[in-house]
Simulated assay, not measured.
Amino acid sequence: MKLSELKAGERAEVTAVAAEPAIRRRLMDLGLVRGTELEVLRFAPLGDPIEINCKGLLLTLRRNEAEGIAVNKLEAAEATQNGWPGLRRRHRFGKRA
């Protein structure tokens, strides 16, 4: 399954990163390596870009970059079993989340 096929709120584990060498290297430097758990937070109104939470880091990826990332979807029990609760609070200028 591709990262771009997940819906907002779903969690997954990265199994492979296939992209152009420069983009692949940058994604791996940001923490998207095999075995990393991530959560899809939201999509832009037209579906591009995608915001994900990876190891507490908020990443925004283009859809074509997300299509190069293979993932295994995790069930809710599997995701909480590893003790990673995910991002629960968002801070915005002038608003409370």
Rank of each mutant, 00 (worst) to 15 (best):
M1L: 08
M1E: 11
M1D: 08
L3D: 00
L3K: 02
E5Q: 10
L6G: 08
L6C: 05
K7H: 01
K7A: 10
K7C: 05
A8D: 13
G9K: 04
E10D: 13
E10K: 11
A12P: 09
A12W: 09
V14Q: 15
A16E: 15
A16Y: 04
A18D: 12
A19D: 10
P21Q: 05
P21Y: 08
A22R: 12
I23F: 02
I23A: 12
R24C: 15
R25F: 06
L27N: 02
L27D: 06
M28W: 01
M28E: 15
M28K: 15
D29P: 00
D29S: 12
L32E: 10
L32C: 08
L32S: 06
L32N: 09
V33S: 14
V33Y: 10
T36N: 08
T36C: 12
E37N: 07
L38W: 12
E39W: 03
E39H: 01
L41I: 13
F43S: 11
P45T: 01
P45W: 00
L46F: 10
P49D: 00
I50Y: 11
E51C: 05
E51Y: 08
I52C: 13
N53P: 00
C54G: 01
C54V: 15
C54T: 11
G56Y: 00
G56H: 03
L58S: 10
L58I: 10
L59M: 09
T60G: 04
L61C: 04
R62A: 07
R63K: 09
R63T: 14
R63E: 09
R63W: 04
N64F: 06
E65I: 10
E67D: 13
G68Y: 06
G68C: 03
G68D: 03
A70R: 03
A70L: 05
A70D: 05
V71T: 03
V71C: 05
V71A: 06
N72E: 11
L74E: 06
L74P: 03
A76I: 05
A77K: 13
T80E: 10
T80A: 14
T80Q: 12
N82W: 04
N82S: 09
G83I: 02
G83C: 01
W84G: 00
W84T: 09
W84N: 09
W84H: 12
G86V: 00
L87Q: 15
L87A: 14
R89N: 14
R90K: 14
H91G: 12
H91D: 11
H91L: 15
R92F: 09
F93M: 13
F93T: 12
G94P: 13
G94C: 14
K95S: 13
K95G: 00
A97P: 12
